[in-house]
C-alpha cells in the first residue's frame, strides 16, 4: 500500500494534476468576489452615454460567497469528474494496470490508494480555493463571516468528496474513461435533481448539501440540518467504494 501511495503522490507532482485542479479552484475562488464587487462598475461603464438606468443593490460578501459556491457546484464538480474519470479506467485501457496487478498487489489497495491520495489533493485544492475566496472577499468588502463560510465549505467538501468517490468507483468499474465519465455525470445530475422531487429528499439526499452550502453563507447552518444529508453522502460513498472494489476484484484486465 505504501508503494502505491508513494507512486500516486509522485504522479501528482510529475503531471498536470499538480496544478490543474488547484489552479481552477483558485481561479473560481478569486473570480467570485471580483465579479461580485466589480459588476456594478462594469455595468455602469458599459451603459455610459445611454439613457438606461439600472439600479443594483449594493454588492455584499454574502453574494460573493454564494457566487463562489454556485461556480464550484457547476464548474468545480465537472472538473472533479473530468480529472478523476481516468484514474483507474485509463490505466486499464492502456494495459499499464495489467502489469501492476500481476505483482503482489491487492486490487482493493490499489483503489484505496488512489482514493486517498487524489481525494486528499482535491480537498487541499478546495481549501486553497476557499481560502483565496475568503481573503479576497475580506480585502474587497472589508468584512466576511469566517465561521459560516468555513462550515458551508465543509458541507460542500463532503458533497465534492462524494462526487469524487462516485467517479473513481465508476473508473474502477468501467474499462474506458469515457464510460466512467458518463456514469459519474449521470450520478451528478441524478443527485442534483433528487432534492426537487420531494421534501423528504430535499432534506435527506446528498444533493441537499449543495443547497445547504449556498444558504449556509447567509445564515449559520445548524448541525441538525446537515447531519442527515452528510450521513447519506458518507453511506453512499462507502457503498460505491465497496461495490467498486468487489467489481474491480473480479474484473479481467
Amino acid at each position: 500500500m505504501t508503494a502505491l501511495i508513494k507512486k500516486e503522490v509522485i504522479e501528482i507532482v510529475r503531471t498536470h494534476r499538480l496544478w490543474s485542479i488547484p489552479a481552477l479552484f483558485l481561479f473560481l475562488g478569486l473570480s467570485a468576489p471580483a465579479t461580485t464587487w466589480f459588476l456594478p462598475a462594469i455595468l455602469e461603464s458599459q451603459l455610459q452615454g445611454q439613457d438606461v438606468l439600472i439600479k443594483l443593490p449594493e454588492p455584499s460578501e454574502i453574494e460573493a460567497f454564494q457566487a463562489y459556491f454556485k461556480n464550484m457546484i457547476q464548474i468545480g464538480m465537472l472538473a472533479v469528474i473530468l480529472f478523476s474519470m481516468g484514474l483507474i479506467s485509463e490505466e486499464k485501457s492502456t494495459g499499464v494496470l495489467g502489469m501492476v496487478v500481476t505483482k503482489p498487489v491487492r486490487r482493493s489497495a490499489l483503489l484505496l490508494s488512489k482514493w486517498l491520495v487524489h481525494g486528499s489533493w482535491l480537498t487541499s485544492s478546495l481549501v486553497l480555493g476557499a481560502g483565496s475566496c475568503y481573503l479576497y472577499t475580506l480585502a474587497l468588502f472589508g468584512e466576511a463571516h469566517l465561521a459560516r463560510f468555513a462550515l458551508a465549505n465543509l458541507v460542500f467538501g463532503v458533497y465534492m468528496v462524494l462526487m469524487f468517490t462516485l467517479t473513481i468507483a465508476a473508473s474502477a468499474i468501467f474499462s474506458k474513461p469515457i464510460g466512467a465519465g458518463g456514469a459519474a455525470l449521470s450520478a451528478f445530475f441524478t443527485l442534483s435533481l433528487l432534492p426537487s422531487l420531494s421534501s423528504w429528499l430535499r432534506d435527506t439526499s446528498p444533493g441537499a448539501l449543495s443547497n445547504l452550502a449556498v444558504t449556509g453563507v447567509r445564515e449559520t447552518l445548524s448541525l441538525a440540518d446537515a447531519i442527515v444529508p452528510i450521513s447519506s453522502s458518507v453511506f453512499l460513498a462507502a457503498l460505491a467504494l465497496i461495490g467498486a472494489g468487489l467489481s474491480f476484484k473480479r474484473q479481467e484486465l
Binding site: K7, E11, T94, G95, V96, G98, M99
Partner: peptide
Amino acid sequence: LPENPAFY
C-alpha cells in the same frame, strides 16, 4: 511479460 508491455 505481456505481449505489449505498457508503463506509466
